[in-house]
Simulated scan of single mutants.
Amino acid sequence: MPERYGSWTSLHTRFRRWAADGTFDRILQAALAKADAAGDIEWLVSVDSTIVRAHQHAAGARKGGSGARPWAGPEAD
C-alpha cells in the first residue's frame, strides 16, 4: 500500500470497521442510485433455466430416500 494511506494495520482495522458498520453497503447503494438516475443501469434481467445443468450425479439419484445401496463388488455383475 502507498505510504500516504498509513500502516497496513490501520487500513485493515478501518476496512473491518467499515465492513461491519455498513459503510460499503451505503457506498454501493449511493453509486447504484446515481447510475440509475442517470439511466446507466438496465434492470431487465432474463434467466433461462434450460442452460442450467444438474450435477452429473443428480440424474441417477434414487427416489424414495437417501439410503445407500450395499455394493456387492465386481463379481456380482
Rank of each mutant, 00 (worst) to 15 (best):
P2C: 10
P2T: 08
P2K: 14
Y5P: 03
Y5C: 04
G6R: 00
G6Y: 02
G6T: 01
S7E: 10
S7R: 11
W8Q: 11
S10P: 00
L11N: 14
L11E: 14
H12Y: 09
T13S: 09
R14Y: 02
F15D: 05
F15R: 06
R16P: 00
R16T: 08
R16L: 10
R17F: 02
R17V: 04
R17L: 10
W18A: 02
W18M: 05
A20V: 01
D21Y: 00
G22W: 02
G22C: 00
T23N: 02
T23E: 07
T23Y: 02
F24M: 00
R26S: 03
R26K: 04
I27G: 01
I27F: 03
I27S: 00
L28V: 13
A30R: 13
A31Q: 14
L32W: 08
L32F: 11
A33F: 04
A33H: 08
K34I: 06
K34W: 04
K34R: 15
A35T: 01
D36W: 03
A37G: 08
I41A: 04
E42Q: 12
E42C: 10
E42W: 05
W43L: 07
L44G: 11
L44Y: 11
S46C: 06
S46D: 14
V47E: 12
V47G: 06
S49E: 14
T50V: 09
T50L: 12
V52R: 08
V52G: 01
R53Q: 15
R53F: 09
R53S: 10
A54H: 14
A54Q: 15
A54T: 13
Q56W: 05
Q56L: 05
H57K: 11
A58P: 05
A58E: 11
A59L: 13
A59Y: 08
A59I: 05
A61F: 04
K63S: 15
K63I: 13
K63C: 11
G64M: 07
G64D: 05
G65S: 03
S66Q: 12
G67K: 15
G67I: 10
G67F: 05
G67W: 06
G67D: 15
A68F: 08
R69H: 09
R69K: 15
P70G: 06
P70Q: 05
W71Q: 10
A72P: 09
A72K: 14
G73W: 04
P74T: 06
P74A: 06
E75V: 03
D77V: 13
D77H: 11
D77T: 11
D77N: 13
D77A: 14
